[in-house]
Simulated assay, not measured.
Amino acid sequence: MRSRLLCFIIYLFIAACTKEEANKPEPEEQNPSVMGDITGKWDIRYPDAPTNGDLLLGYIEFLSDSTVIFTDLSVDHTMVGEFNVKDNKSIVLSINTSLLNVTVKNDSLFFELFSGELIDKFLAVKDPNATPEGASRLLCRDWSLSKKEGGIEMYDQLNRYREEEIIEAKVVFSASGAYFWRYFKENGMYSTPGRQNWDWHSNIDNAIRYWDPRVEPDNNVYQTIYELTDSTLIMGHPQINGNLYFTPVRN
């Protein structure tokens, strides 16, 4: 059983960390019905695992902008990539890795992991609490940081002590509460400070709290959102002078 888990982790890690140019399948129109079925967060199990047993492998979350987030619970590691719905039965994660024979039944997602060969069959159960509502529908996607105002200072800080230049910083928000920065080099590989959690501040309008998952959230640690549309995100940062401007990586 552990070998199946390791295979799943390894192949998804390869899918997430392949160079961006090689990672992208040929552009094609997404199937809207399949996108609607799979959008959300899913708890990954083996098909024969008890619903409340200890065989939970991790989480996979599909966002409406084709961003996929995978969290491996065994090593507490989160990875972000892009997915493409090829047809009614397959989801492409990278040039060599796909989910095949995808079937959605009620709140269950069945699929086979393929990466050059069939790895194994899995079951994922949908999390009913990870559905974006209101402003979260606009926020929950992958965003690219523009090099203006506060973005200039942030890129300067990121590159101050690095040998390889960070050419793009991206941040993704998910409905399940994932807040995840990635810093991309010219070769397409990225580094990350790791996953954080986020939610809407209960006492301050248009603000989000963010925190390390290992600690409790602090109402004094937050970022103010000054503008949020389907094409623009502008927010402050407590350690940066000037606002941060973002554009969607994908619509």
Rank of each mutant, 00 (worst) to 15 (best):
S108Q: 08
S115F: 12
A135K: 08
L109W: 04
V102F: 01
V125G: 02
D107L: 12
I119H: 08
N129L: 14
A124K: 04
D120G: 14
N96W: 03
T97N: 04
F114Y: 13
T97H: 04
R137P: 13
E117H: 09
R137N: 09
V102S: 01
E133P: 06
W143N: 01
C140T: 11
S144C: 07
F114S: 06
L99R: 00
P132R: 10
A135I: 03
S108L: 15
E149Q: 10
L118C: 14
K121F: 11
A130M: 13
S108N: 11
G134C: 14
F111G: 12
D142F: 00
P132Q: 12
D142P: 12
N101W: 11
R141H: 10
L100A: 07
L99V: 15
E112S: 10
G116H: 08
L118F: 13
A124C: 15
C140N: 02
F110W: 07
F122N: 13
G150Y: 01
P132V: 13
T97W: 00
E112Y: 13
T131P: 09
N129A: 04
V125Q: 07
L145M: 10
K147L: 05
S94C: 05
S94K: 05
W143G: 01
D142A: 13
E133N: 04
G116C: 08
V125Y: 09
E133V: 07
P128R: 03
N106M: 12
E149A: 04
G151V: 04
E112K: 11
K121P: 12
L118S: 14
T103P: 15
L138H: 15
S108E: 11
R137E: 12
R141W: 09
T103Q: 11
E112H: 15
K126H: 07
L123S: 12
S136N: 07
L99E: 01
I119Q: 07
K147E: 13
I91M: 02
L139Q: 06
A135N: 11
